[in-house]
Simulated scan of single mutants.
Amino acid sequence: MSTRPAPLSAGYGIRPARPAESAAVAALLARAFADDPVMAWMIPGADGERERRIARYFRLARRQQRPRAAAVRVAATAEGRLLGAALWSGPGRWRTSAVRELAALPRYAGIFGLRGMPRAGEVQEVMHEAHPAEPHWYLPAVGTDRGLQGMGVGSALLRQQLADCDRLGQPAYLESSNITNVPFYEKLGFRVTGELLLPNGGPTLWPMWRGPDPAAGRAPR
Rank of each mutant, 00 (worst) to 15 (best):
L148P: 09
D36E: 13
M39D: 06
P140N: 01
V142H: 00
E175V: 12
P37C: 11
P118N: 11
A85H: 01
V182G: 06
L162I: 02
G189H: 04
D166L: 08
I179Q: 03
Q124Y: 05
A156T: 07
E175L: 09
Q64G: 11
A109R: 15
E129R: 15
K187S: 13
E21V: 02
S89T: 07
I43M: 14
P37N: 07
A86V: 14
I111W: 08
A98K: 05
I54S: 03
A215P: 07
A215K: 09
Y57K: 08
F190S: 03
P207W: 07
P44S: 07
F33P: 08
M127D: 03
F112Y: 12
A10F: 10
I14T: 06
Q65I: 09
G194T: 09
L157D: 06
P5L: 03
A133N: 06
S97Y: 09
M117W: 12
G11M: 08
R66T: 15
L105K: 13
Q161H: 10
R63I: 08
P207A: 08
L188N: 02
R53S: 04
A69Q: 11
L114V: 15
L205K: 01
A24L: 03
A46Y: 03
G150D: 03
V142A: 09
E186T: 12
V126G: 08
R4I: 13
R119H: 04
T180H: 15
R50I: 04
G121M: 12
R53N: 11
P37R: 09
A103L: 15
R62F: 11
T193R: 05
G143L: 04
G154A: 05
G110Q: 09
I111R: 07
S177C: 08
F58Y: 14
G11I: 14
A20D: 15
R95K: 09
P212W: 04
V25R: 04
W94E: 13
L87F: 14
A133L: 12
M127G: 03
A30I: 02
E186A: 14
S22C: 06
W88T: 02
V182N: 05
Q170H: 11
I54C: 04
M127V: 12
L82R: 02
R62S: 05
Y12E: 05
L188C: 04
A216W: 06
L139E: 01
A70D: 15
A141M: 07
V25M: 09
Q64I: 13
Q124V: 08
P214H: 10
T96C: 00
L162R: 00
G11L: 13
L87S: 05
E101F: 10
L83P: 09
M127Y: 07
G189W: 07
G84R: 01
Y108A: 04
R115M: 07
A61K: 06
V142T: 02
R146C: 06
G217V: 02
Y173N: 01
N200Q: 15
W209N: 08
H131M: 04
M117G: 06
A46P: 12
H128V: 08
R31T: 05
A20M: 06
G202W: 14
